[in-house]
Design a protein around this nucleic acid. Structure first.
Length: 612
RNA sequence: GCGCCCUUAGCUCAGUUGGAUAGAGCGUCGGACUACGAAUCCGAAGGCCAGAGGUUCAAAUCCUCUAGGGCGCGCCA
């Protein structure tokens, strides 16, 4: 609908520009529904945008534009058009234009809301990509659900979407996992072992060890690490990935491609990538400036100010212990291979090879993005907020290789604070008290788990309340929306039982929709393609959830208001009844489609658990 | 110390890429069921959009500074 109006203005503005009445619109103008519906169906700011270049006051220019619009094709759809405020052009479309748009819902059904704004652009959405070292926790869940929502939105808006998971199956972390498994393996064989602090604690580690024990017996008990490490690593990764797949499947998340970091090395992609950088003269051997944090000056400064204990002492901390060991080996900065990322907007140049000559994680990561970009027109990364610092270097790498850095869009996911009745659920990785995604899904269900993650923008911290997610009351947004859908289903059942014909689009009956609430619902329904396209282009699935909540709220209000005033959906007037039944049926379809974009079910009945 | 993100009603948060009088939910107070699901709805109170400048027809939105909160800052992934 918005496009329709835009097109009319495009034609009018082009004609006026051709006649020299005003300059060609180089900056875009907007067509949007005004906040206050009394201002009309749409407000266009073209006159204000063009005023400066035209050298005319906005209102005067608006007058000229209005005249041009009146003369253009399609102007017949405009019922009224006038100028308001500083130079807005407000317009109302003819009622029948809106009413006919309602027919689209019936025509397109489950596809209503799909658009082609993506123009078939190939886009890879990479999300989750959690290290395969343990089961998924709630934070991973948020990433997974958000990424899945983004992918679904992009598909709905006409992109060719590939969902991709990058598996870090190569570096130190999976080696640590392999060693943890080996320790358990020894333990199961009756050996006395002490588990170091940095070993992975979970029960699944024992399971993997048991599997290996069953298969290999004592074969790796006294073997050299270099002999068993790869075996244990690969087996552990395989096992953990199976767990991860299971957890993801439980919330209906599936990937098209599982990309292995190890495979990037084995296939020669990383080497090829490095050569490509070298050919462009973008790598050199040099030293890195010493890190600016932790040890050294800042700590002294911190101690000197009033606020002490800014730096957590590394003692007793896994990471700290690990680092201390490394620091002993070589805190002296030595020569390494650096990528000149600072030439492309990064703060400093980043190492692509360690002092021992092996590629860094970063090297594989940008090689991966380079490779992805070759397979697609655009990339989306869904990353935890703690990886925000990686973004400049990823973009730098793409730019260095001749790609537009804007082709990579990063969605940063903020932390999830798990609560129960308002109280934060304390979690500690080391103590093994992390609440897994699986536990959450088992407790509150798939729909609630998913929907809750859409109740905030991705980059805002989220409190996930387990009690709230389970509650069957209006303060639970999942329930509220699903209940609305079920309520409409109930009305349709009622009408069917009363022998009323299945509602079909019919211009005459929908003309009977004259209540302001009906106009409002109608507009919300017709706006769905705009809402979904807008959310997709902004990579913001939460907008869909907000749309659904607002729309169903409008319906509940309409419903209850009608009950009070006697203007019910099913009433004595057959024409009105037919129009209203069609309206709510269309609304039901819209809700179902919106929920489908979020991967949440749209039930026709709510099961009454603890209610009469 | 440097960089990025955040600060909107008592609380939790939206705000359509810069639009007209800043909106929801929760909470508080007061109301609404003899017919479609009261599992709902209506109304009221509640705001210096952290603060100060700037950009322009127009700023919660963009820029600069200040104050508070979060995150990041080895050859770890």
């Amino acid at each position: 609908m918005r496009d329709h109006v835009s097109a009319i203005f495009d034609r009018a503005l082009a004609r006026g520009a051709a006649e020299g009445r005003w300059p060609a619109p180089n900056t875009g103008f907007t067509v949007e529904p005004p906040r206050d519906p009394r201002h009309g169906d749409f407000a266009v700011n073209a006159a204000m945008v063009l005023a400066r270049a035209a050298g005319k006051p906005p209102r005067e220019l608006a007058q000229a534009i209005v005249e041009a619009v009146r003369a253009v094709d399609g102007a017949g759809d405009i019922a009224s058009i006038d100028i308001a405020g500083p130079g807005f052009i407000n317009l109302r479309l003819a009622r029948d234009v809106w009413l006919r748009a309602l027919a689209e819902v019936e025509g397109q059904g489950e596809a209503f809301g799909r658009t082609e704004v993506g123009k078939g652009k190939r886009i890879i959405v990479e999300y989750v990509s959690a290290n395969p070292t343990g089961p998924m926790h709630v934070g991973h869940g948020r990433n997974a659900v958000t990424g899945d929502g983004v992918a679904r939105l992009l598909a709905w808006s006409g992109h060719a979407v590939t969902r991709e998971y990058y598996v870090n199956d190569f570096g130190a972390q999976v080696q640590t996992l392999a060693r943890s498994v080996h320790l358990r393996y020894q333990q199961l064989a009756g050996r006395e072992v002490t588990l170091p602090a940095k070993a992975y604690p979970g029960e699944y580690v024992v399971d993997i060890a048991r599997e290996l024990g069953a298969e290999f017996g004592d074969r790796w008990l006294d073997a050299q690490e270099r002999d068993w490490l790869a075996v244990f690593r690969d087996r552990a990764v395989e096992h953990v990935l199976a767990l991860i797949r299971e957890d993801l499947a439980a919330i209906d998340i599936h990937f098209d491609v599982w990309s292995s970091e190890k495979a990037l090395y084995e296939s020669g992609t990383v080497a090829e990538f490095l050569r490509s950088l070298e050919q462009r003269g973008l790598v050199y051997v040099g030293k890195l400036p010493p890190p600016k944090s932790k040890k050294g000056a800042p700590r002294v400064v911190a101690a000197a100010t009033e606020k002490v204990a800014i730096d957590k002492p590394p003692a007793g901390d896994d990471e700290g212990a690990l680092r201390e060991a490394e620091d002993e080996l070589g805190s002296e900065s030595s020569d390494l291979t650096l990528f000149a990322s600072s030439r492309f907007g990064d703060e400093v140049d980043r190492p692509v090879k360690k002092a021992d000559g092996t590629p860094t994680y970063f090297c594989a990561d940008i090689a991966y993005h380079w490779q992805k970009r070759q397979r697609a027109d655009a990339l989306v990364d869904v990353l935890g907020a703690d990886h925000g610092g990686d973004v400049p270097r990823l973009k730098a790498a793409l730019q260095a290789l001749g790609y537009d850095p804007r082709d990579l869009h990063v969605v940063l996911i903020q932390m999830v604070n798990l609560t129960r009745g308002g109280e934060t659920v304390k979690m500690s990785k080391r103590a093994g008290t992390v609440v897994s995604l699986k536990e959450v899904v088992e407790e509150v269900g798939r729909d609630a788990t998913r929907f809750m993650f859409f109740t905030r923008r991705a980059d805002a911290q989220l409190d996930f309340d387990l009690e709230l997610a389970k509650r069957q009351t209006l303060d639970n947004p999942v329930f509220y929306v699903q209940y609305g859908h079920a309520r409409i289903a109930s009305i349709l059942r009622k009408s069917s039982e009363a022998g009323i014909a299945e509602p079909r689009f019919d211009l005459d009956s929908v003309r009977a929709l004259e209540l302001p609430e009906e106009q409002d619902l109608l507009r919300r329904i017709v706006a769905v393609p705009d809402v979904l396209a807008g959310a997709a282009l902004a990579y913001e699935p939460h907008r869909v959830a907000f749309y659904l909540q607002e729309t169903i709220s409008a319906f509940h209000s309409y419903y209850t208001g009608g009950k009070k005033s006697g203007e019910r959906v099913i009433g004595p007037d057959p024409r009105k009844t037919a129009g209203r039944l069609y309206l709510v049926k269309a609304l039901k379809q819209v809700l179902a489609n919106g929920l489908a974009v979020l991967g949440v079910s749209a039930p026709d009945r709510m099961e009454s658990r603890d209610l009469p």
